[in-house]
Structure formats: C-alpha cells, structure tokens
Amino acid sequence: MKSTLFKHKFFFVFDKPSFIIQLKHFLLEKQTKEITMRNESKNATYRLVLLSIFTAIILLQNFVPFLGYIPMVALSLTIIHITVIIAAIVLGPTGGAIIGGVWGMTTFIRAFTFPTSPVAPIVFTNPLISVFPRIMIGIISGNVYLKLKKWDAHTMSVCRLHHCLAL
C-alpha cells in the first residue's frame, strides 16, 4: 500500500526504523529544495535591484547636464560608457548588455526629442549607430572581465614579460 505522504519515490513500510529514515530523507530533501529556491530568489532580487540602480544612474547621466555628456563645440563627449562597463563587471555580460541597451535607447529617443549636439539628430536616429554599439560595450567588457578573471598570476607575468620584450 502506497502512502500519500511519500508519493514520488518513497513507499510506506510498516517497520518503524525504516519509516523514520524515509521520513528524515524526505524532510531533508524538501528542506534543501526550499533553501536553494530561497537563495535563487534572493539572487534574482539582488540582480534586479542592481539592474534598476544602474538604469537610474544611466538615466540620471543622460538627462542632467554635464553629468554624463560633456558638451564641446560640435560634439558631446560622454563618460556614460564607464557606468556600462562597471555594470558589465558587476552583473556580467547580460547585465552589461541590458544597461548598454538602456543607454542606447535613451540616446535614440534623445536624438529625436532634445539632441545633445547638432550632429546627434543626423547620426543617432539610426538604431545601428545609437543602440547596437552601446549594447556591445556591455557584452564585450563583461566577457573581457570574465576572461581576465580566469587568468592566474603566472599567465599575467608571462604576458608582462612578453610585452616588455616586444618593446
């Protein structure tokens, strides 16, 4: 006779010690699943909060004068890519791509509404110029960071030695 408590893989056994062992295994398995689900939920929440903070920083840098764009004569220099690179380091390539996409979309929208320079309405109305490179900044910088993180001290010293000998 099967028990309703142990439907998935446990069978009801009438001797008391094996029933207690089965009950302990069932409860331990259930507890570990709950703990991993809680940790994944906390990790997802933490990641979402970081994404929203970086998005707010990007929007703030876009819309506050002299904070993200430094106006020159005909162009505007930007320091927003530093925020995207930091987001890619903290959140990985996908997070960097999302933040870069936010920056690209605000640049695209801003080219139509209130451009940062006289050249912006001509250049940044094309999404291949305004959105795609900014997404690639996040992807490439996140992947470069992951590759550099895997290098050990020996590999770094060999690269330095090779660089010094090349000069």
Rank of each mutant, 00 (worst) to 15 (best):
Ala74Arg: 12
Val64Glu: 00
Gly95Cys: 02
Trp103Cys: 01
His163Thr: 09
Leu91Arg: 02
Ile122Asn: 11
Phe66Glu: 13
Pro71Glu: 15
His81Met: 06
Asn143Arg: 12
Leu60Met: 10
Leu67His: 06
Leu91Gly: 02
Leu77Asp: 09
Ile58His: 09
Val64Tyr: 06
Ile109Ala: 15
Ser130Asp: 09
Ile109Pro: 09
Met156Gln: 11
Gly138Glu: 09
Pro115Ser: 15
Asp152Glu: 12
Met105Trp: 10
Ser76Gln: 12
Asn143Met: 15
Lys150Tyr: 02
Lys149Gly: 03
Phe114Trp: 12
Ala87Asp: 06
Val73Pro: 14
Ile79Leu: 13
Gly96Arg: 00
Gly142Lys: 04
Leu60Cys: 11
Leu91Asn: 00
Gly96Leu: 00
Val73Glu: 15
Val144Gly: 03
Ile85Cys: 12
Ile57Tyr: 01
Gly142Leu: 01
Val102Ile: 13
Ser130Tyr: 08
Thr155Pro: 00
Thr83Ser: 14
Lys147Thr: 07
Leu146Ile: 07
Pro115Arg: 10
Ala87Gln: 06
Phe66Pro: 07
Met136Trp: 03
Leu161Asn: 03
Lys147Val: 08
Gly92Asp: 02
Phe124Ser: 02
Leu161Tyr: 02
Met136Ser: 06
Phe108Cys: 04
Ile129Pro: 10
Asn143Val: 12
Ile137Gln: 04
Gly142Arg: 03
Tyr145Ala: 15
Phe112Arg: 06
Ile70Ser: 08
Lys150Met: 09
Gly68Met: 09
His154Cys: 07
Gln61His: 08
Gly100Gln: 05
Thr155Ala: 13
His163Asn: 06
Ser130Glu: 09
Arg160Ser: 06
Ile99Val: 06
Gly95Pro: 03
Asn62Trp: 04
Ala74Ser: 14
Tyr145Met: 13
Tyr69Asn: 14
Gly92Arg: 00
Ile140Tyr: 01
Ile135Gly: 01
Met156Glu: 13
Arg110Val: 13
Pro133Ala: 04
Thr78Phe: 04
Phe112Pro: 03
Ala87Tyr: 05
Tyr69Met: 13
Gly100Asp: 00
Met156Ser: 10
Thr155Gln: 14
Leu59Ala: 11
Ile86Pro: 05
Pro71Ile: 12
Trp151Glu: 14
Leu161Cys: 04
Arg110Gln: 15
Ile109Tyr: 11
Asp152Thr: 08
Ala87Glu: 06
Ala97Lys: 00
His81Ile: 05
Phe114Lys: 15
Gly92Lys: 01
Asp152Lys: 13
Ile109Gln: 06
Ala111Phe: 08
Leu148Glu: 08
Gly104Asn: 01
Phe124Ile: 02
Ile135Glu: 01
Ile137Thr: 08
Ile122Asp: 10
Pro127Lys: 11
Arg134Gln: 11
Arg160Asn: 02
Ile57Lys: 02
Gly104Pro: 05
Phe112Lys: 01
Pro127Gln: 11
Ala74Pro: 05
